[in-house]
Design a binder for these strands. Structure first.
Lengths: 252, 252
DNA sequence: GGCGCTCGAATTGCATGCAGTTTGAGCCAC
DNA sequence: GTGGCTCAAACTGCATGCAATTCGAGCGCC
């Protein structure tokens, strides 16, 4: 067994806030909610049958995870990470997941290996379905790995950063490319089972790196969704006190 | 300049919630609030001149950062990480900070190097003061480094995990040992300035590793604060539905 | 004296209400 | 038409109120 005692749950349990968080998180990573989508407190509250207070609290949590952007007196929106932030997220993710597989190599039980294999099989079966589901399953594979370290902190960070990466994929990725990724998952499982630490760390590194470079196509100027997003940072500058009035264009 | 554009602020700005978060965070890492200290919503609200709603929201944010433990219907307390969690936090921190210095090596401006040096000087001057302040300054040195990457995500993760480590130091550390750490900080600055990537990554690794192993003395059984804490996990098990009544000792 | 029980005080979970800000649709002048 | 202005609706920021739960001091029993 690759274990220590569990006890998990950082702040996630069964209260209404957590339920809403989970629902929104999933909606976001499945792209049911695209980056930039508005998330008014009332609507959320109504949709989930709770008061604004609760919806608001949930948005706060998701903002802390970087999935939602919260600006004072403004409606909350699904986060729209910049290209650079996306690249940063992947860099961090690579380090964290190398740590995961380093801890896991050669320490997995047969049951755990079976669980991983089953998950990848599920990914395989979902290949015909929507891209969104494929992406979600691929992400969940990595989170499943993190869980097996039994380190709640590691689980939290890997989950967060993986969700963020997932979000950026929906922004900057083209058609999609999960076919090969599935085989890479299988290779990682094999190397983990074999206990080859260096090999599995290398595999994980190149796996994530290739996903990143394949998806985050280029530092080429024009890849933002639309002018609105492109102009957003300038608007932000303006809200930072000084600067006259003059934005007469750039409404909507 | 080692930069890209900033824009930062994940969810931290100037609303009352953030103010309370910052205050509590600082109080926690300076050990004004020890692990296990109670944080009732009313008291916080009263103390900061806000309503319970706001205090509650702030506690939610801090819980997301792992500095506060939130259990349903129970009073919030400053987090009391287990020894294993502390070790995990340090492992993650090592990887993240290696990434920081890797990005920074040879790319710092003279002004930035001066800023870092000034900070370490401040650490030096604070050596006679309380341990709490020394620890805080040492932690802030690392966060300052992270800021210089201009990667908001990296800043956030390094900050969080550094605060967590800070928290565990107050739990498991003995007298204190920052004297040598200060010199290690200077060495890191020098290596960064010189642009020696491998050297600085090695320095950071051994720096953090030595802090961790010096502080987190041993996996020896008895280091929890008191019986209450030791019994806490068992109580948790019990609250997980089954298990009869029987805990008759272990009140307070 | 120690142990368990009971009940009031303390505290949380959540909804609602009010004030201030932002949004954007319509209107007017050009 | 085009650009700017106005104002009501939409929305957020925050406090307060009420029900449900937990805490803990005191009381009775062994």
């Amino acid at each position: 067994m690759a274990g220590r005692a569990d006890s998990g749950k950082t702040a996630e349990s069964s209260d209404k806030v957590s339920v809403i968080c989970r629902a929104l998180r999933r909606a976001i990573i499945e792209q049911a909610l695209e980056p930039g989508a508005k998330l008014p407190e009332d609507s959320l509250g109504e949709r989930f049958g709770v008061s604004r207070t609760i919806a608001r609290h949930a948005l706060g949590q998701l903002a802390a995870e970087g999935l939602v952007e919260l600006r004072r007196n403004r409606i909350a929106v699904v986060a729209t990470p910049s290209w650079q932030e996306a690249r940063d997220a992947f860099d961090i993710r690579i380090e964290l997941e190398r740590l995961v597989v380093r801890q896991l190599a050669g320490k997995l039980t047969k049951a755990q290996i079976a669980e991983l294999t089953a998950h990848v099989d599920a990914e395989d079966r979902a290949r015909d379905g929507s891209d969104a589901v494929s992406i979600r399953l691929a992400t969940e594979f990595h989170i499943l790995l993190a869980h097996m370290t039994n380190s709640p902190i590691l689980v939290r960070y890997v989950s967060e950063v993986a969700y963020r990466c997932c979000l950026t994929l929906s922004l900057y990725s083209r058609p999609h490319s999960s076919e090969c990724a599935i085989n890479e998952h299988r290779a990682i499982i094999a190397a983990l089972a074999k206990g080859d630490v260096d090999k599995v760390m290398g595999l994980m590194h190149s796996h994530l790196d290739s996903v990143a470079t394949r998806a985050l196509v280029a530092p080429s100027p024009q890849r933002g969704r639309d002018l609105l997003d492109i102009l957003a940072p300038y608007a932000d500058e303006a809200s930072g006190e000084k600067m006259v009035k003059l934005p007469k264009a750039a409404r909507r």
